[in-house]
Simulated scan of single mutants.
Amino acid sequence: MIHVTKSFLPDIKEYISLLEQIWANGQLTNDGPLVLELEKKIAEYLEVENFLFVSNGTIALQLVIKALELQGDVVTTPFSYCATTTALIWENCNPVFADISLNSLTCEVQDIQKVISSQTSGILTTHVYGNCGNLLEQEELAKEYGIPLIYDGAHAFGVKYKGKSIFNYGTISTCSFHATKIFHTIEGGAVITNNNELCEKVRGIRSFGHKADDYFAAGINGKNSEFHAAMGLINLTYFPQIRDHRKGASELYDSILSPQVGRIQWNPDNIRNFSYFPIILPSEEKLLQVIAELNEAEIYPRRYFYPALNELPYLTYQACPIAEDISKRILCLPLSAEISAENIKKITEIINSLL
C-alpha cells in the first residue's frame, strides 16, 4: 500500500544512543538537556531569535492566542487544517473568514481587508503547504490596525521567504512536528517569535503559568519530553536529505502529470520545503473518480484540506466561494522521503488515464 505520506525513521541505533543518555541522567521532561539542545539547534538552523518546543502544533496555536490575549473577532483562513479554527474556538475567539487567493490558496491583503474591522483583535492565517502570500503587505496591514499577525506554519519548516526563514515574519508563528510532517519529533510543535518579551510570556504559560513555586498566570501543560526531543535531534541531521528526495519526487510528478491537472502557484520569493504535492482536479466528480481508481490500486491520497473550514457543522456559515470550490477539488498525492520513481509513475499513469 502507498499512503499519502510515510513517517521518516532514522536508524534505531541512533535513537537508542540518545535513550541511553536519558536513562543515564534520569530527566524525562521539564526542560531536560535534549529539549534545550533541540531548541538551540533549531533556532540556529532556522536563524530565528526565539524557538520554543511544545507538545504539538495545536497547543502552539492556543498558547499564542492566550499569550496575545486575543478576544472576539480574529480574521483567519477557511483553507487550513481544522486545528487553525478550533484553536480559536477553544480560546473563546470568533473566527472571521477571509477567502483565499485562487493562485496561492492563502489569504492575501485584499481578502483580509474585506472582513477586517475595528472589532478585529488579530489575524491568524496559514502558510498553506508551506506556500505564502505577500508577507510584507500583511505585516503593514496588521500594523495599520495595531493588531498581532499570527502565522500557522505547520507545513513550513525549512521554508524561506525573501532569503529569510518564513518564521521571521509576522508577530509570532507556530509549527507542527507531528509524525506526518517533513520534519517530525513523533508528536510536537513550536512557537517562534523575534519578540523576546512575548517569548518569555509563552514560555511561562507553557509550564502551568509558574516559575519555581511562584504562579503568575493561568497556564497549561504545553511542554514536550526528552524522548520527542531525541527524535527531533536525529531527524534534524537528515532534514536536507529528506527535503532533497521530496524535491526530486515533486519534480518527477510535475514532469509527467497531464497538463489538465491543476497546480497551485508557488510564491517565487519562497525557497520551498516540498512538504506536500497537491493537485487540483477539474471537478469534485473527477476527484472522487481519481481517488476510487487509486484506492483500487492500494494507493491512498488525501483530500487535504476538506471541507473548507467555514463549512464546519459547528460554526455559523460565512461564504468563502474560492475556498469552498478548491476544497472540493484538491488532492494531496503520496510524497515521502522514501517514495520511489516507480510508484510515482504508477500513480501518475492512473491519474492521466482518467483525464
Rank of each mutant, 00 (worst) to 15 (best):
P313T: 03
G209V: 11
T348N: 11
A156W: 05
L354T: 05
P301N: 07
L124F: 15
Q289W: 02
E298H: 05
I59M: 08
P240W: 10
L354D: 07
S327N: 03
T185G: 08
L136W: 09
P282D: 13
S165V: 05
N343F: 09
L46S: 02
L28V: 08
P282I: 10
P321H: 09
L34G: 02
L105Y: 02
G219P: 10
V96F: 02
E137S: 14
L355E: 04
E298A: 06
A218G: 11
G158M: 08
G204T: 08
H245A: 01
A83K: 11
A60K: 12
A154P: 07
A190K: 11
Y304N: 11
N267Y: 10
T316M: 13
K345P: 05
I234E: 07
Y276W: 09
G204F: 07
I347E: 00
L281R: 04
A292I: 07
P33G: 01
E108C: 09
G146A: 13
E342W: 02
N196E: 15
V48R: 14
L312P: 03
I100H: 00
E44H: 10
A24F: 06
V74Y: 05
K201H: 12
Y238D: 04
E338L: 04
A217L: 14
S255F: 14
C93I: 08
N235W: 02
N224P: 09
F167G: 00
A156I: 03
D31R: 07
G26N: 09
P240D: 08
E91Y: 12
L28S: 05
E293I: 00
F51N: 00
D31C: 02
L36T: 09
K211R: 12
E137C: 07
Q113F: 09
L124K: 11
N131K: 04
L287K: 12
Y317L: 13
I234R: 03
T180G: 10
H3P: 00
F53N: 04
L18F: 06
G122H: 13
S353W: 11
N194K: 15
L105G: 00
L38N: 07
I16K: 13
K6G: 00
Y145W: 15
I220H: 11
A156Y: 06
F79L: 06
I22T: 07
L36I: 08
K201Y: 12
C93E: 11
H184W: 10
E285Q: 08
Y304K: 15
S17D: 12
L46A: 03
G26Y: 06
C93P: 10
L331A: 02
E144T: 13
A230M: 01
E298I: 02
Q241L: 10
A43W: 09
F274G: 00
N343H: 13
Y306L: 01
Y276D: 01
P78W: 05
E293N: 03
F274H: 08
D11F: 05
T180C: 12
S327L: 02
Y215D: 09
S340G: 09
S173N: 14
P259N: 14
K201A: 12
A230K: 02
T84L: 15
I264N: 04
I112G: 02
D152I: 13
V4A: 03
P33V: 09
I12A: 14
L68D: 01
S104E: 14
F183L: 15
K66T: 12
I42L: 11
N273W: 09
S225L: 03
P321D: 08
L281I: 01
Q21W: 04
Q119N: 15
